[in-house]
Nucleic acid binder design. Sequence first.
RNA 1: UGGGGCGUCGCCAAGUGGUAAGGCACGGGCCUUUGGAGCCUGCAUUCGGAGGUUCGAAUCCUCCCGCCCCAACCA
Length: 569
Amino acid sequence: MAASDPPVPSSPAPSLDFIRQIVDADRSSGAHQGRVHTRFPPEPNGYLHIGHAKSICLNFGVAQEYGGLCNLRYDDTNPAKEDVEYVDAIRDDVRWLGFSWDDREFYASDYFEQLYQYAEMLIRDGLAFVDDQNADEMRTTRGTLTEPGTNSPYRDRSVDENLDLFRRMRAGEFADGSRVLRAKIDMASPNINMRDPVLYRIRRATHHRTGDTWCIYPMYDYAHPLSDALEGITHSLCTLEFEDHRPFYNWCIEHLPAPSQPQQIEFARLNLTYTLMSKRKLLKLVQDGVVSGWNDPRMPTLAGIRRRGVPAAALRDFCDRIGVAKKENVIDVALLEHCVREDLNRHARRVMAVLDPVKVVIENYPAGQVETLEAVNNPEDPAAGVRQVPFSREIYIDRDDFREDPPKKYFRLSPGAEVRLRWAYIIRCTSVVKDADGTITEIRCTYDEATGRSSTPADGRKVKGTIHWVSAPHAIDVEARLYDRLFTTEDPEAVPEGKDFVVNLNPASLEVVTACKAEPSVAGLPAGTTMQFERTGYFCVDPDSTSSRLVVNRTVGLRDTWAKLEARG
RNA sequence: UGGGGCGUCGCCAAGUGGUAAGGCACGGGCCUUUGGAGCCUGCAUUCGGAGGUUCGAAUCCUCCCGCCCCAACCA
């Protein structure tokens, strides 16, 4: 562009979500020395799901956009529920989503010794005490939402006694659950989280990283702010339910010589229609065998979504589009499907495959003749090139593409009607062969030799429909797993009184079709390959595939205007 | 009923005193060798409600209503 050209009207600055506005303001005011450093802090007690993807994209995204860093930190303060299986899966999932934390893979358990030393400081400052009350007693003395709690009878122990007791807790002198270390704040606080919250509990459990080194473990509320401070986190992003915990988060930072002052900011977690997001309930689905595992393609886990064939880029796009705010939200799963289709439309190679085959014999095509026809791999991407597909006298088409008694506006094959074979000839149906039950076993057609791939017929006649097909002698057998939503209700958790959420399970969430036929080019495709079965949907090669059997998962169907029209009547 | 939050189109979501962006969904049309894709087009006289301040309010003030979260030695 020449210098004299008028300036291109600049598009309005993209609006920032409230978190980026805060980060923006902090940078220009010089808060946190102008640094941006976030963290993604999963607890390794289950697999990551799409809700975590929102948090991952937010934390890593904000860091990236402002030239900062984002750590991966495992919040592993509860050995009873955590496991290395989960830490490995989480690492794989975050990496798959497309983010890198370089060498900054941390664990709250890395800080156990430091956290312990901090606790002793609190005791010395008269800000923490060892409580001998059991869990029941603590509950009753905590008060209620409207009534203040009462001080523990052990609250006024001397510093020396507290220090001695706490050290003996660490040394393993006391039984699990017999004592805890508590912060000394205010039992009358209207915020229940400030009523002398527990800092440490005694729990003899082997930790996946520290083994049996410890028998006392810090609570999340104590470990989290300090882990953040130790890592120099500037913006600690978490979900809304921790809003009430923020005063205690700040209390920890203020009362200890923390090396930095992170700020906690809360946003609304993701909810999706027809989708369960509770880790506990997802675990139940796995344990009860309702699904084949954490990576079942119907699961909202990142492992499941990946196996389903959803590209990471589509998921990132989805997270961008849903926004970040403080309002509770339920995103329509149709938006996710839209993002998936949009990505796959541009990137997935097209292939012809017949899910429910019925044989078509082309009567005037020479027996034994085989032609090789050229097909475009992706009309959206010329660089994807072309491939050759074999054509012969006997082909398969989808049963759904033939109607003996076609409804109005049905553009596919029917007796006497013409239809185009994708990348091949126009055929006309001459007759139908049925078995004793009346099921169609074969469709007889003739083809018009002059209508090869060179587009429209010379006489200019219009053929409305185009259907996909596979040459019978060249077809490859494929098992297709057709997935549908796992639940029949928008909110799977909404359940009639006394019932379990399993009543909302969709009995037809998986349909396995074993007799599919695909064009030869799909032979030997590696697991994870995504493709579009023309006119049908997007599919992905499943790792269950073997050299003799290709297994594909339906990621999502194509938009189907005809189905919608027909359903409308 | 104590405390903390949130209420803008069916679902998300911009908007931060100057006269309601955008996306998804949905509807209409064009185009099409995928009934795919693409293109065009319609879709909030009004921002939970009522008062008030102001020349002017989704934005400021008051009151009211609704929804969510908190009483684990979970995170």
